[in-house]
Deep mutational scan, measured.
Amino acid sequence: MAAGGDHGSPDSYRSPLASRYASPEMCFVFSDRYKFRTWRQLWLWLAEAEQTLGLPITDEQIQEMKSNLENIDFKMAAEEEKRLRHDVMAHVHTFGHCCPKAAGIIHLGATSCYVGDNTDLIILRNALDLLLPKLARVISRLADFAKERASLPTLGFTHFQPAQLTTVGKRCCLWIQDLCMDLQNLKRVRDDLRFRGVKGTTGTQASFLQLFEGDDHKVEQLDKMVTEKAGFKRAFIITGQTYTRKVDIEVLSVLASLGASVHKICTDIRLLANLKEMEEPFEKQQIGSSAMPYKRNPMRSERCCSLARHLMTLVMDPLQTASVQWFERTLDDSANRRICLAEAFLTADTILNTLQNISEGLVVYPKVIERRIRQELPFMATENIIMAMVKAGGSRQDCHEKIRVLSQQAASVVKQEGGDNDLIERIQVDAYFSPIHSQLDHLLDPSSFTGRASQQVQRFLEEEVYPLLKPYESVMKVKAELCL
């Protein structure tokens, strides 16, 4: 049975990233139509530049190519590739079939990587351009969430054990800070992308030097003109047959890092959902379990974690691919890159769409948070109580021993009897502590235990987050809708 299948058929496997999760716009960027249309555009740009620099290419040939950029006979191309065992030459023939007058000058002087690699770089750039505003929107939604809850005390956790208090907004800023680093890295790697350009079979530009009869300047002009037509500021000066596969490492490393950030955020949300302090959106008709109707599973956060793990592992592909590119190139890269580049971007696209949807509907339960604080705060307040007693004339050592005994009794009630923490009640009825009984409410005010959390939130948002989001103001209103 021949390899390949009808990918629109229910009898043929289709990647869930495309069929179930990723956005239509990201799927289109990695589609065959987008790819092969870009090949034709690159052939047109090459012909236009070659004509401008004096090669015998007519206006009629150029116009014929322009008129057929979208006229792609995919069936013919597939048949040609089956016959020739070469995808680029299959599309040269297919393009030439609908451009008979231009057929002889299509791909003039070029090698397969002229269309293959340059198209990949265009796709990487455009895919990054799709991700950047999506990530900015996630940051914006979380920034709104953090600002609104900047002063809401909550129990902090280290080692997932109760620690000092923080605020809900401050905790959210930990998430935002990681995503801001990801946004900066995505922008950097996007701006650092260079075009492969017009380089020939081993990167020496020998074929173009021959076409222009040894004119170095025209060869350099050709490279520059096509690079500018493709919208790049610069091209690699040095290439082998391909652009260095280190570029793929750079791009997928940034995406993998984004995956790590999203995994951490969504894990926190899942843990908070278990504590009943916070939940992701839950639709009115949504079913959490087929057997347990009360369940409210954090399905979206779980999906993000599941896909983020996949995204983090994909960076190993370009690392290994770059390491086995012998001399000017081997074909070890080809099949692998067809999979890992598309999957990385479709996965990143999915987790950003999902995280935006989550961040637009996060639900906080202040009463649950308050109750958990009441359970733990008495123990945390013991040092403040000791200091207040010393100020009232008591002995630190005597007070410490009193607190120690009462704390152990209260802990026994919590752990052995399943009761509430009654340390404060014990202190309130103990005559030894009568000098500070009137101060206990103040000493137990949760806001006095959150330090500068709310001020940190305000400063972080104003100095770091809002300036970073400013270039994306025009796209901030787009909502994230999930079908599944």
Rank of each mutant, 00 (worst) to 15 (best):
D6N: 14
P16G: 15
A22F: 06
K35R: 03
L42A: 03
W43P: 06
W43S: 04
L55Q: 11
T58H: 13
D59W: 03
Q61H: 01
N71S: 05
D73S: 01
F74C: 04
K75R: 05
E79S: 02
R83M: 10
D87V: 01
D87L: 04
V88D: 00
M89P: 13
H91P: 10
T94K: 07
C98P: 01
K101T: 12
G109Y: 05
D117K: 03
L121T: 11
D129K: 14
D129P: 15
P133I: 13
I139W: 13
S140L: 09
R141G: 09
A143L: 11
D144G: 11
A146H: 00
A146E: 01
A150M: 00
L152K: 07
Q161D: 01
T166S: 00
C172R: 10
I176G: 04
Q177D: 01
K187G: 06
R190V: 13
L193I: 12
F195R: 03
L222W: 04
M225S: 09
K233V: 10
I237G: 10
T239Y: 08
G240R: 05
Y243C: 15
R245D: 06
I249E: 10
V251L: 12
K264L: 14
K264C: 02
R270E: 13
L275R: 04
L275S: 10
M278I: 13
E279D: 15
E279R: 01
E283G: 07
Q285S: 08
S289F: 00
S290L: 06
S290M: 06
P293I: 03
Y294D: 08
K295W: 14
P298Q: 05
M299V: 09
L311R: 11
M312S: 06
L314W: 03
T321E: 06
V324R: 03
V324N: 04
T330H: 13
D333M: 15
N336R: 03
A342W: 06
A348Y: 05
I358Q: 00
V364W: 11
V364T: 08
V368Q: 03
Q375C: 13
P378Y: 14
I385E: 08
A388V: 08
G393S: 02
G394V: 03
Q397H: 00
E401F: 00
E401H: 10
V405S: 02
L406I: 12
D430M: 14
F433M: 09
H437N: 12
P446S: 12
S447E: 11
P467R: 11
